[in-house]
Design a protein around this nucleic acid. Structure first.
Lengths: 226, 226
DNA sequence: CTCGCGCGGTGACAAAGTCACAGACGCCGC
DNA sequence: GCGGCGTCTGTGACTTTGTCACCGCGCGAG
């Protein structure tokens, strides 16, 4: 949580801010608080209204929603160079949100007070562009989630997900429960489909992780039309 | 499609604009185009990028998503006094969207060119507030849809929907197909549940419409925890 | 070593979605 | 008033997904 009020090097990650007049940049650097968060920390949750606008420098924040019954679904992820829309939205419209944000890695970010945020929006077209396009991207993400949940088969979505989350070795480090949350389904459903994938020689299963055995086969499944 | 460049009375519907300095208001009135659309007209669709920022004065626009397989789901509705976020988002981030907007009633709106929009955002805190809070509300709507689709039972959602769409007489004018689209499910599923509702004395069914017979019973269903 | 807990496996059943097709109603033209 | 036609609704059979209950295993802490 080190405050480095004078250091403005982080701005290089945001082209929108790079274009600001020097005077603006200095003012911004003066009020911005640089912060670091450990992995697996809850950044925001229902009932905890944020006080700052946040720019992510490094790391990933997962945003998910929890239903009364305990089931969860991942809505989207925020990565370096992006702004956290949920906090922005709370800041700007005083609405409480149902979603929860959790760091997946160590996260470095800068926090900007609301007044400075308003100022930037008013004076910097580039900053406006940044904020609006992040909003738009989140809306697109959410629409994609709706489409997947409402219309796509679980096996297809599961294949997509493990392909997307596999490292270069083809390893995916995730429990069945974690994958179920990604898809907004139940753990048993994931277990059964993975079992079937294994039977078909598409993956090798192990406790807490799995390995892609037939990327092409999985890809075919992931891209199937039906 | 009458252009009434000099008439600024519509601004009264937007408190955010009412607070603008007189000079700004005049400038805005000069560039705003007042338009009227008939019911059941497609306002925007994938591939048709909009050129104006839109403020709805009267009427309702339904925004929905269509899956490749032909199934559809209603995402949210835009009513008088609100802005059409999809067009805004397209305007601001040059992204193509998968959603489609359709007027449900005759719609009156004003269109503002992108340059005037930029100008307003820069100069009017009230206008900023309007745009950002509409963005936030749409995100909240979408999150609500995700939650419903992923976690709630169809009978509960159907009960909620017909309660919400009933007029004072308790009449709902909608085909089973239309209700299915509201919920993002299949027509047969709606038919079967409505049949069951009828068997339990909750509704009376007729072709193309239905009547609530037991509001309390439906409410109990709609608010059930399971 | 062993205890406990998180992880995964399974069977049985309920709910929802799919497919195919049959009636039935309402409207329009004649 | 009558046929014809398109839309709306009903239904059965089957698949997929979700729920519930419960079990066993393995890994890590103590």
């Amino acid at each position: 949580m080190a405050a480095t009020a004078a250091d403005a090097s982080w701005m290089q990650q945001f082209p929108a801010l790079d274009g600001l007049p020097a005077a603006e940049r200095q003012r911004l650097a003066a009020v911005a608080q640089s912060i670091t968060l450990p992995a697996d920390k809850v950044v925001f949750a229902p009932g905890r209204p944020p006080e700052h606008f946040m720019l992510l420098l490094e790391g990933v924040v997962r945003v998910q929603q929890t239903a009364p019954g305990g089931r969860e679904i991942v809505l989207y992820r925020v990565a370096g160079g992006e702004t956290c829309i949920m906090t922005t939205a709370c800041l700007l419209s005083h609405e409480a949100y149902a979603a929860e944000g959790v760091t997946e890695t160590e996260v470095k970010a800068v926090a900007i007070p609301k007044t400075a945020f308003d100022d930037l929006i008013a004076t910097s077209p580039g900053f406006r562009q940044l904020v609006f396009s992040d909003y738009s991207n989140r809306i697109a993400d959410l629409m994609h989630v709706v489409e997947e949940v409402a219309f796509e088969r679980i096996d297809k979505r599961l294949a997509q997900k493990i392909l997307a989350r596999a490292d270069v070795e083809g390893e995916v480090a995730a429990t069945h429960q974690a994958l179920a949350v990604e898809l907004g389904t139940a753990r048993e459903v994931v277990s059964r489909h993975l079992k079937e994938f294994q039977r078909r020689g598409l993956v090798d299963l192990a406790r807490g992780r799995l390995r892609l055995a037939d990327r092409e086969g999985l890809r075919a499944l992931a891209e199937a039309e039906n």
